[in-house]
Design a protein around this nucleic acid. Structure first.
Lengths: 199, 199
DNA sequence: ACATTAATGGCACTCAGCGCCACAATGCAA
DNA sequence: TTGCATTGTGGCGCTGAGTGCCATTAATGT
């Protein structure tokens, strides 16, 4: 779908004028400088040195830029879940996988925390992110369905998907406020809070 | 904020040309007829017999129309929570309140199920709804903070808010698929599923 | 050279949303 | 009755996202 989603098997034809990473970086600089809403696609195109029309071939919308190539990381998430040991409880398998998935490399560009801060503090991005979250949930839903022998449309997998996202979002919001704790710790704490809440 | 958010204390000045309810109804007819994305604000304005510009004085955006006057129902939600007995567990108080809040009157126009189906099956509305969900969560967060003597920015209230929304969304999705069960039953089941999941 | 392939980017269009402002329709006061 | 303050209407024109169309460009392969 996106130009780079599959590794370029041929080098035939005109080469791309830019890359997802380059656009992401240039856009992020503008976003942090003058704000997301105050940055137009034209601004970004100028910064990259490319036509506005071309930008839309790399990212389907302006809202998609801060998420980068999230669909690719989801495949990693799928693998992490599948590698979870069979002898631990379902909630344990999911929880550990979520923790592993969110243990981002420190050298991520743009930095993971800055990216999440932008997403979670910009209303239009908060809204758009639901569509990304849905993809993320689907990975969990399918995993739970497989492990429990249920259908992905059944109630249990769906509920687990929603609740897992809820815990992750709660942890991320805490993470952005208090820079002291790690996201791993905060995910653990969110789970503990849920258990306390349910008595 | 919205023209009718406060009961019109004075009858001075030019009377309104339409109402939230009328716009909602006309828009909903068009949405079901040709689809949400295929309906422009101009179409709705024509159907109501009013200027396009006027529509934006009743609803801040096209995405807000299907939600109607949700902010008003949130005040009812707040009251429901406050009336919860002091001697039951926190999670019980929240759960019962959510059930009560979602026991919509049968004669709601447009019908509650149709409205939710539109919202939950239209991507742009799904996205926009996050902002509404945030308001809904805030009501729960503030309640939990009050009952536990914590701050609304603390982790526990926030986690409860997110998880409560997760359960509600899961129940609603089931509700739209299988028309047999009541939303009350499905909310109960979602809670039961969560308990089963956590072992 | 020349065909093929694949990406670029300009142009023109639709539509949401907003600022501005002249104007219309009401109540009230003189 | 006349004027005035008040409040909503709606037209105009703009910005900016997103899209379809398509000529152009830059590479490879024969």
């Amino acid at each position: 779908m996106t130009p780079e989603s599959a590794p370029p098997r041929t080098t035939v034809g005109r080469p791309g004028a830019t890359s997802h990473a380059e656009i992401e970086q240039a856009a992020f600089d503008l976003f942090t400088d003058r704000g997301f809403d105050q940055t137009t696609m034209g601004d970004i195109a100028d910064a990259v040195g490319v036509g506005r029309r071309t930008l839309f071939r790399y990212f389907p919308s302006k809202n998609d830029i801060p998420w980068g190539q999230f669909d690719r990381t989801l495949e990693a998430f799928r693998l992490i879940l599948d590698q979870a040991p069979r002898d631990i409880a379902l909630h344990e398998a999911v929880h550990r996988s979520v923790v592993t998935f969110n243990a981002f490399p420190d050298d991520a560009r743009p930095p993971h925390r800055d990216r999440m801060r932008l997403i979670l503090s910009t209303p239009s991005l908060q809204a758009h992110s639901v569509l990304r979250y849905a993809d993320w949930r689907r990975v969990i839903v399918e995993f739970v369905a497989r492990r429990t022998g249920q259908d992905p449309t059944d109630a249990l997998p769906r509920t687990v998907g929603h609740v897992s996202l809820a815990l992750a979002l709660s942890a991320y919001e805490s993470w952005l406020e208090q820079q002291s704790s790690s996201i791993t710790t905060l995910l653990d704490e969110a789970m503990a809070e849920l258990r306390w809440y349910l008595k």
